[in-house]
């Protein structure tokens, strides 16, 4: 059988400074799982499998359960987001004001679906439910910055500006 030795192959010697610190900060009780995952998501921009393994060992929770938690909550993602993460609000107030059109345009322009990242790693898009800026509906956000009273034209401008910045 070929699988005998347990060595992480990524060259990190099995440890990671951020995760070490995280484990120091929280007590090893299962209740802390979601809190810790929130920090992992914040730090890496996604939840790497490595982090899931460390939490599994530390909190004594099987990896399948951690994976079950990660895939349950929409805030946690398993893949890195793009440099620019664009979230379109599909909450009711924005929906009624036509945010679906913004989302459709975004999908058309970037040729990806919500939850995906463009091949060059520049853009990712997601659907979000109410960022609380209903007064500005419809809204979309780029890396958390809110663009209110959005139109397809405004989206195009923003996309062009962001793409232009990179060239």
């Amino acid at each position: 059988m070929e699988e005998e030795k347990k060595v992480c192959q990524c060259g990190c010697n099995g440890r990671d400074e951020f995760l070490d610190k995280l484990c120091e900060e929280y007590k090893p009780i299962k209740d802390n799982l979601i809190q810790m995952l929130n920090e992992v998501q914040e730090h890496y921009g996604y939840v790497p499998i490595k982090a899931q393994e460390v939490l599994s060992e530390y909190l004594k929770v099987p990896m399948a359960e951690i994976y079950g938690v990660v895939t349950f909550y929409s805030r946690f993602t398993l893949k890195p987001k793009g440099k620019y993460n664009i979230a379109v609000c599909l909450g009711t107030a924005c929906y009624v004001k036509g945010s679906q059109k913004i989302m459709d345009r975004l999908k058309e322009r970037l040729k990806i679906e919500p939850g995906e990242t463009t091949k060059d790693g520049m853009f990712s898009i997601e659907e979000t439910r109410c960022v609380g800026a209903c007064g500005l509906a419809p809204v979309f956000t780029v890396n958390g910055e809110v663009y209110g009273k959005a139109t397809v034209q405004k989206l195009d401008q923003v996309l062009n500006a962001l793409s232009g910045k990179e060239e």
């Binding site: 899931q52 099987p62 399948a64 994976y67 079950g68 349950f72």
Partner: peptide, 20 residues
């Protein structure tokens, strides 16, 4: 007390599977 499988995903997409 193994936990090799668990419920993953949410809603209609829920399924019983392993990590990853």
């Amino acid at each position: 007390k193994i936990g090799a499988i668990d419920c993953i995903n949410r809603g209609f997409e829920s399924c019983i599977s392993t990590v990853g």
